[in-house]
Design a protein around this nucleic acid. Structure first.
Lengths: 140, 140
DNA sequence: CTGTGTGCAAAACGTTTGCATGCCT
DNA sequence: AGGCATGCAAACGTTTTGCACACAG
């Protein structure tokens, strides 16, 4: 995702309106590494802008996703999460506290077996590592 | 997952009852490579045992998952899928027809950067490859 | 015969939609 | 002023639950 300022410009150039609700959502997402769910975003923005609705949150997230500004991630059984980091990267998920953290792509480049490449043309991939984070490991 | 016979034995040893419904679900799952959803399983078993309910399907899948006989997979935004292959393996997902296929682990062994291993103890991982399958590639 | 499993109906959950009103541009 | 955005309420699809009855052991 771009900076809030950038996003505002992109919205303007698409003739989409800049409302306080949208601006609030932009700010919450900007450089957010927490992989918030719609609910997370909703409760944060509600503190600033108490009359906001879930509908607006979902609709704004939907626009941002369609514009390619954020990713909707489906790792959690319970609910979807949103990620403003749209570069290829991967996730580590703590099975005890459910915290999701990023891993930048860097060295991780799994190769598909050649036989499969005849059957399938990959365009992207995603790795989920499951395990225990330092904090939870100590508390065990 | 084990064979149906094996499963029956394990159920017996846990004092769980073997009903025709459960047996039907076992048979549908046995060596099933299709990653069926609850709905897929329900409609298959309904042909054999027309009075079966969704409830029974979900409850049976839940028991099997808790026993570690099947995996619940969360790759599809829409619904959960079930996989009787509980060995470490990965998935390729065709973005056009949504078909999910398996990739046995073999050569794919992504390594986490050393810095992260200090913060996080991985216990398992899963890779999703997204792309286009041969059939859909042709139809484009 | 006993207690677990079944299946109905209803609820729960996250998410989406229709529509009248509000407000950005 | 015009039209897109908002927010309510209702609908949605999947999954879960409570409960009376059925049936495997």
């Amino acid at each position: 995702m771009n900076t809030v300022d950038n996003l505002v410009e992109r919205f303007r150039s698409k003739k989409l309106k800049i409302t306080p609700q949208r601006l609030g959502i932009f700010r919450i997402l900007e450089s957010n590494l927490q992989h918030p769910s719609a609910e997370d975003i909703f409760s944060k923005i509600k503190k600033i802008y108490p009359t906001v609705s879930f509908t607006t949150v979902y609709k704004t997230l939907d626009i941002l996703e369609k514009m390619g500004e954020i990713l909707k991630i489906t790792i959690d059984e319970e609910r979807k999460h949103y990620d403003p980091n749209t570069n290829t990267h991967h996730h580590i998920i703590c099975l005890m506290c459910n915290k999701i953290s990023d891993i930048e792509e860097e060295h991780i480049r799994p190769k598909l077996p050649r036989g499969i490449l005849n059957e399938f043309t990959p365009s992207s991939y995603h790795i989920s590592f499951y395990g225990t984070c330092k904090k939870c490991h100590k508390n065990k």
